[in-house]
Amino acid sequence: MNETAPTRNGRPLSERVATRLLYPTSRPREKSLHDAVAGQIVLVTGASHGIGKASARKLGAAGAIMLLVARSAEDLEAVAADIRAAGGTAHTYPLDITDFDAVERLGRKLLDEHGHIDIVVNNAGKSIRRSIAQSYDRFHDYTRTMDVNYLGPVRLLLTLLPSMRERRSGHIVNISTWGLRIPPAPRWSAYYASKGAFDCWLRSVATEIGADNVTTTTIYMPLVHTRMSAPTDFSGVPGLTTAEAADLIGHAVTDRPHEITPWWTGPIQAFSDVARGSAHRFMARAFKRGKA
């Protein structure tokens, strides 16, 4: 077979093979996922598109009671309709996660209406790829990414965590980025800073809430071909489909590992920690050549 010929999902075979090698995914058995989430109240942010939509449908099909959060009421209702048509249960809550007062109100409303939340999938995110030379007059790039990727999720969890700790039950799944496991790449300063802030916050909080049986899983997600990544030309770059990303979320809620990350990021992170100067020079040369 011609290795450049498209496969059934439209991607070349060579890209699919590279994806499998670089980003192997763990797909839980249907029974295991059902046993883990059936009857559980699961909140997914950014549920109207991409990874959030795929994971909400997957968890809803497994019997979870889905609470869907995103900005667009119409798009949320479409996802909820899919879940209900498949026999599941879904409730929609339109929200701009950068409106921190509204986020707090929603958290309290969810607890009032449902009593508790079992699982939170922190998926809503904003990505910006822009060089620092193009950012001098765009401070709002940094405030927007911090609001969506860091401060909004923190505001939500500050509202939900007391209930989880009191019940001594709960799980938080954070959709982070594999970019935090390698040397910082050029043009991603706004995105990496915001994702890194929440990553560090959650890792610190996890050391406190674990004693109350509230657990966390951080997924250092590789590239996923979604509308969020579409503005950057990743054509030909190995990446996951939204269904494959949803499989990782299924793994996270079923087995509850501390983290899920591509296998090769550990050695790269170790090297960059020991040889930070060399890693920096490599990234700087790549930027100069226009390949980063």
Rank of each mutant, 00 (worst) to 15 (best):
I51V: 04
D99L: 01
R84P: 09
K288S: 15
E208V: 04
R289T: 15
S278C: 14
T7E: 10
P262Q: 06
A243H: 14
G196N: 00
R16W: 13
K291C: 15
A80P: 08
A193L: 02
L43G: 03
A292Q: 02
M221W: 07
A102K: 02
N9I: 12
A85M: 12
Y23N: 03
W188E: 12
N2I: 11
P94D: 06
K288L: 15
I65N: 10
D112A: 12
K53A: 09
E77L: 07
P183D: 03
T7K: 12
H91V: 12
H116Q: 13
G10H: 01
D247P: 10
H114W: 08
G46Q: 00
L158Q: 05
G152F: 00
F271R: 06
N149L: 00
I128V: 04
A70I: 02
D255F: 07
L13D: 14
S272P: 04
A190I: 05
G125T: 01
R168A: 06
G60M: 03
L111C: 06
V37T: 08
G290L: 08
K291A: 15
A193E: 03
Y93A: 00
H251K: 11
M228N: 06
V42M: 08
T143F: 02
R84Y: 05
Y93R: 09
P262Y: 04
G107L: 07
A56Q: 07
R276V: 14
A286N: 07
R57F: 12
L158D: 04
P238T: 07
G277T: 08
T7G: 12
V121D: 05
A284F: 10
T45A: 01
R203A: 08
Y220E: 05
R8L: 15
G196A: 01
E166T: 14
M228K: 08
R8T: 15
G239W: 05
A252E: 04
R8S: 14
T207P: 06
G87C: 00
T92L: 03
A64K: 10
G10Q: 04
D255A: 13
E244I: 09
R281S: 13
